[in-house]
């Protein structure tokens, strides 16, 4: 992974994230949100985790971003009205960022470069999911089912 590519992806990702966090129009923010996930997936691809990158694209851009857009459309009577910005949040965020950067720079063992690795094949991931990680897999399945049903019940029309 060259430094130029790294810098490019980092700038794209962070710019899109900043846009998603600050744009006034919700729909624009949701689109920047999708762009940000393209950037993160690019990171995953460059770090050799292609499968995770693809899953990220499928799940976030294919599903979550679409869900957000749907929600925006369903609650759109409110979109123009909810404005305003809580400036105290900026101070907290900057403080946390400062603290994290200071800690990272202080930790000497982190300035390392990656070694060559053997690529993780989809086959290997599949084998791991079916052996070592079979219980987490089942739990995630149950969790997703519960989330699906729960979400449906939440949005059902209230009978009054």
């Amino acid at each position: 992974m060259s430094t130029v590519a790294f810098a490019g992806i980092a700038i794209l990702t962070l710019a899109a994230a900043l846009a998603a966090a600050t744009l006034q129009k919700l729909m624009h923010a949701a689109l920047s949100f999708a762009v940000m996930f393209v950037g993160i997936s690019a990171f995953f691809f460059f770090l050799g985790a292609e499968f995770v990158g693809l899953v990220q694209i499928f799940v976030y851009i294919g599903a979550v971003a679409v869900l957000i857009v749907f929600t925006i459309l369903l609650t759109r009577h409110d979109v123009g009205k909810v404005r305003g910005f809580n400036w105290s949040g900026v101070f907290v965020a900057v403080a946390v960022f400062g603290g994290l950067v200071w800690t990272i720079s202080k930790t000497k063992s982190l300035s390392i470069v990656p070694q060559q690795i053997k690529p993780v094949t989809v086959q290997r991931i599949g084998e791991l999911l079916m052996t070592n990680y079979v219980w987490p897999l089942q739990c995630v399945g149950v969790l997703l089912t519960a989330a699906l049903i729960g979400a449906l019940i939440l949005v059902m029309e209230e009978k009054s």
Binding site: A17, A93, L100
Partner: peptide
């Protein structure tokens, strides 16, 4: 080649932008 700490700084920045969105909007 970027080092691990550069990647961590990027992810810390991303985290804080997320925090900003969650706290301020």
């Amino acid at each position: 080649m970027p080092t691990l700490s550069m990647l961590l700084v990027v992810s810390a920045a991303l985290f804080c932008i997320g925090l900003l969105a969650a706290l301020s909007r």
